[in-house]
């Protein structure tokens, strides 16, 4: 066990953990975050995804000791991350992808949607108007056992249409 400092959602946290602890366990057990969730534990499903320096990362196989000074963003901090990225003066209650998931009534159980939203937010941060093929390609590594893929695609398209407005 060692004392480690990690930056999560723009806040520094001191935690006691062995450096080989997967980041996911630190986020859910030490920090009490409910966004990233254990799905497969093998980086196959994406329900544990977080952003590390803006890059979608599977927290179940990312060792907390490897994070160092990098900035971790979870679902809980996504709208703040978005506001910083876009230079918005006010942090919206939800990231446009989150709002679009509500507007499309996309999810059923919602367990995988942490990863769906994180990945879609990463995609839109790089490509603000992705084609359906780009969406399908980006979301390929995220699994939804409820099978809500068509609505996820529609919601990301809806969110992408909201992007130019917030870019102004």
């Amino acid at each position: 066990m060692a004392q480690l400092s990690i930056r999560v959602n723009e806040r520094m946290w001191k935690i006691i953990a062995t450096p080989d602890t997967p980041l996911l366990y630190v986020l859910s057990n030490e920090l009490g975050l409910q966004g990233p969730r254990f799905g497969c534990g093998l980086a196959q499903c994406g329900s544990c995804s977080v952003l590390v320096e803006g890059i979608e990362t599977r927290s179940c196989v990312t060792l907390v000791g490897s994070i160092g000074s990098k900035s971790v963003t979870t679902l809980e901090g996504l709208s703040s991350w978005f506001a910083r990225q876009k230079g918005l003066s006010k942090v919206p209650a939800l990231h446009p992808v989150q709002q679009a998931m509500i507007d499309e009534q996309a999810l059923q159980c919602g367990y995988c949607y942490n990863g769906m939203i994180i990945k879609a937010a990463e995609l839109l941060s790089k490509v603000s108007q992705p084609s359906e093929a780009q969406i399908r390609s980006a979301m390929n590594g995220h699994l939804c056992r409820c099978g809500t893929y068509p609505r996820i695609t529609k919601a990301i398209q809806r969110a992408s249409r909201m992007m130019p407005e917030v870019n102004k």
């Binding site: 969730r37 509500i102 999810l107 919602g110 367990y111």
Partner: peptide, 18 residues
């Protein structure tokens, strides 16, 4: 609109794992 969705997309929904 389903009443369970807003908490699920914002990470507030308490799944049994939490």
């Amino acid at each position: 609109p389903r009443n369970d969705i807003p908490d699920k997309v914002s990470g507030k929904h308490v799944y049994i794992q939490h």
